[in-house]
Every structure is written in structure tokens, then in C-alpha cells.
């Protein structure tokens, strides 16, 4: 049994590690070297592919677009959702329940269901080929899950804390800032990480709304490399590595929060 367990764990580890190592190694190879030595260590650590991809493509621009879209989408989603989660938790009677249901209903609807009217709306508003358009849509579609996670957490804050603050004359805004937010830091961190992974990696909305190079985010740019470079895996994987780097660095340092965040998000329906 013990041997079986070790063998299984090792096989799974190899299945994860080998492809990831191959990606890293391949970025230092030429196409002919990949052909002759598919999984092995590269002959030399040449940075030709890294130079070429930056010469060939506005990589810095794609990268910045991804940073801008992710930064604003995550922070604004967290801000708006925490306000709503707070209000829902504090509201008396059935009104809070109604708002909670209205917002969390959004988790059930796959993005492809409303993408056609959404495309039309974004087009009519003149927000195609604009980072602002992407950010506004991102906020709207990820609010449901953010509200779901944060309101679950805020409900567990003892009511007596709010009562006490109220007796001291605190307004709702003051209670939101000084009681609810400081006590919800773990759930806010989990939500932010979950959204970070989602927005950084999203393909659908850039695919729908962006056609000009100067507004492309990394996943969309990568997808189009496929058409340009076909099976030039060294260049494709250099793109993959650059696109994944921020996420990997964040994962190494914030591992625990990643696990908490992605799991919290996965509890949605």
C-alpha cells in the first residue's frame, strides 16, 4: 500500500513537472533543436527567442494592457462588491435576501449565454477596442462571485460589534470602513487573488471586444501567435512564459492565499 502510494504520487508529480520543464527548456532552443531533443536540457541557454519575440511583437504593450486591465478590474470589483456585501449583511428583512439572490444569480449564467447582446451593447457604447470596456465588463461579470464570498464572510462578524459602533454614533460608512473591512481582510485577500487569476487569464472578452494590436491583452495576443508561428514552439513557449511569469511569482510568494482564493471561488455553483 505504501509503495503504491509513493508510485502514484511520483507519477502525478512527473506528469505535472515534465510539461512545465519542457516549456522552460524549449524557450532556449531553436526549432531544429526541439525536433532532435524534445524534452532534454538545451545545448546552451540562448536568449534568442526572448529577443525575437520582443522585436517581432509589441510584447511590452500587451503586458501593460494586461496589467492595467487586471489591476483596475480586481480593485474595482473588490471595492464595489465589498460595499454590496456589507449592505446585504446589514439590511433588515427580506430586502437583503432579494439583493443577495439578484447578484448571486449571476454566478449560474455562463458567459456564452449573454455574450451576443453584451457584444452589441459594448459596440453601441463605442467601447470595443478599449481597455475601459474590458474593465467595465470584467467588473460586472465577476461581482456575483466576489459578493458571494465576501458576504458569506461578513455574515460571521458578530452583530454586537455593529450595535456597539452604532451607539457610539457611527454612520454606516464609518462602520463599513472601521469594522467590516478590517475584520474581512482574509476574505478580501482570497477574493482578490481569485479575481487576479481570472482576469489575468481571461480570453473570451478580449476575443470579443479587441481587434487592434494596441489594446490586446496577453492571452489574446498568445492565441494569435498560434496563427502566426504555427508550430514554432520555442517562440510560442517564450510567449507563454512571459504571460505566466507574474502569476507564477505571485504564486510562489502568496501560495496559501492562492489556495484559499481559488478554493473560495470554486465553492460557487
Amino acid at each position: 500500500m505504501k509503495v503504491f502510494k509513493i508510485v502514484m504520487l511520483s507519477i502525478f508529480a512527473v506528469v505535472i513537472i515534465i510539461p512545465l520543464m519542457a516549456v522552460v527548456f524549449t524557450t532556449f532552443k531553436s526549432t531544429s533543436e526541439v525536433f532532435s531533443n524534445i524534452l532534454g536540457v538545451p545545448e546552451a541557454f540562448r536568449f534568442d527567442n526572448y529577443v525575437n519575440i520582443f522585436v517581432d511583437q509589441p510584447m511590452a504593450r500587451y503586458f501593460m494592457n494586461s496589467v492595467i486591465v487586471t489591476l483596475f478590474s480586481v480593485s474595482l470589483t473588490v471595492f464595489f462588491s465589498s460595499l454590496i456585501a456589507y449592505a446585504i449583511t446589514r439590511m433588515l428583512g427580506w430586502i437583503g435576501v432579494v439583493f443577495f439572490s439578484l447578484f448571486t444569480l449571476g454566478m449560474m449564467v455562463p458567459a456564452q449565454v449573454n455574450m451576443i447582446p453584451l457584444y452589441q451593447l459594448v459596440y453601441d457604447l463605442g467601447l470595443t477596442n478599449s481597455l475601459l470596456g474590458l474593465i467595465l465588463v470584467n467588473i460586472s461579470v465577476t461581482m456575483p462571485v466576489a459578493i458571494f464570498i465576501m458576504s458569506g464572510f461578513m455574515k460571521s462578524i458578530p452583530k454586537s460589534l455593529f450595535e456597539a459602533a452604532k451607539i457610539d454614533g457611527a454612520t454606516e460608512w464609518a462602520m463599513y470602513r472601521r469594522v467590516a473591512i478590517p475584520l474581512s481582510v482574509p476574505s478580501i485577500a482570497a477574493t482578490a487573488i481569485f479575481l487576479f487569476v481570472m482576469h489575468w487569464n481571461d480570453l473570451l472578452y478580449p476575443l470579443l471586444f479587441i481587434t487592434q494590436n494596441q489594446y490586446k491583452t496577453l492571452p489574446l495576443a498568445l492565441l494569435e501567435f498560434q496563427g502566426e508561428y504555427a508550430t514554432n514552439y520555442p517562440l510560442l513557449f517564450t510567449g507563454v512564459l512571459i504571460a505566466s511569469a507574474p502569476m507564477v511569482v505571485a504564486y510562489i510568494f502568496l501560495q496559501r492565499y492562492f489556495v484559499a482564493g481559488v478554493t473560495a471561488g470554486s465553492v460557487k455553483g
Binding site: 489575468w200 492571452p219 498568445l222 504571460a243 505566466s244 502569476m247 481559488v262
Partner: peptide
């Protein structure tokens, strides 16, 4: 680890 990668990658 794979969970944090983009679907395109």
C-alpha cells in the same frame, strides 16, 4: 500549479 495558468498557455 496548473490551475493558475491561462487556458491558452
Amino acid at each position: 500549479f496548473p490551475t493558475i495558468l491561462s487556458s491558452v498557455s
